[in-house]
């Protein structure tokens, strides 16, 4: 009886994962942006599992058993990095008992580490909120940085899977070209953008890229809810000018709606990451949504 059970277990063990083994690289991406990047660069040579839904706060997730299971067999982990996933990814990776994806190994890739980050060198003082001296991690909304990250990712994938090297590099170049193509229209649309009031500095890279004014953040310091005093001050500063309020689905909509009403601005709830199973196209469409929302109102 026990022998039969063990045999069944063994057969099951060997039989599993063959679907993903068909792909040359088993990739685990933390966010759908990183998943889109993996699909853009890896195309048919990679099998991608994304750990977080696009409407969730990547900073607040828990290391769930299913994540640990996915990491167990990964050849490559693609994280946003810069401490965005610090609460759960190191724990999940450690629990996955997979030496290939430990930080420092080729199987561990951080997007934010490949590019120049903004907000670097903020004093490490939590009186200023949940600050991260490594810099603002939300690089995924900047198309130019993402194309640099794609190039770096192609090199990393080429190192792990030399047979696909040419393909990875060509795909990254293709991704860069597709971005190039849309850049002029985005630049044109955003040239006269009135500016945006965010909840958190999470769309900073997009604004910085296209010179869209950041009119303020609803939270006074990162990770601390908006205070009435701060909102009042913002209202006084911004009254009379044009703008738009944008928050993510996981940020409380109360303060954004209230501010939008007082200022007479539109308010949008936009996720930072593209929909589940996004590829390069879906990522570009996602940026389109952001650009449309930031554009001057007709």
């Amino acid at each position: 009886m026990i022998a039969r059970l063990l045999t069944a277990l063994l057969v099951l063990t060997l039989g599993v994962g063959t679907a993903r083994e068909a792909a040359a690289l088993a990739v685990v991406a933390t966010s759908t942006s990183m998943g889109a990047l993996a699909r853009a660069v890896g195309a048919e040579r990679v099998g991608v599992i994304v750990l977080a839904a696009p409407d969730r706060d990547l900073h607040a997730l828990q290391a769930k058993p299913t994540m640990i299971r996915a990491l167990r067999d990964a050849d490559l982990v693609i994280a946003v990095g810069a401490e965005l996933e610090v609460g759960w990814l190191p724990l999940a990776i450690a629990s996955a008992a997979n030496p290939r994806i430990q930080p420092g190994q080729p199987g561990y890739f951080e997007a934010a580490d490949q590019v120049v980050r903004l907000d670097v060198g903020i004093p490490a003082d939590r009186a200023l909120g949940d600050v991260h001296p490594a810099g603002n991690p939300h690089v995924n909304l900047d198309p130019v940085r993402m194309s640099a990250i794609a190039a770096a990712l192609a090199e990393r994938m080429a190192g792990l899977d030399p047979d696909g090297a040419a393909g990875y590099r060509a795909n990254a170049a293709g991704f860069a070209a597709a971005l190039e193509q849309r850049l002029p229209s985005w630049q044109e649309r955003l040239a006269s953008a009135p500016g945006v009031l965010l909840y958190h500095r999470d769309a900073l890279y997009l604004l910085d890229r296209f010179g869209v004014p950041l009119l303020g953040t609803l939270e006074e310091v990162p990770g601390v809810p908006p205070t009435a005093r701060h909102l009042k001050r913002l209202t006084e500063q911004l009254r009379g000018r044009a703008g738009v309020v944008i928050h993510t689905p996981y940020q409380s909509p109360r303060a954004p709606r209230q501010m939008a009403q007082i200022l007479g601005w539109p308010v949008y709830s936009l996720p930072l990451d593209p929909p589940a199973d996004a590829d390069a196209q879906a990522y570009l469409d996602h940026l389109d949504r952001w650009v449309m929302s930031l554009s001057p109102q007709p």
Binding site: D119, V120, G121, G211
Partner: peptide, 17 residues
Amino acid sequence: TRPMTAPLASPAVTDAP
């Protein structure tokens, strides 16, 4: 990276990767 034109945004401090 063009500098921020935002009144509230802190200047874009850059750092090497």
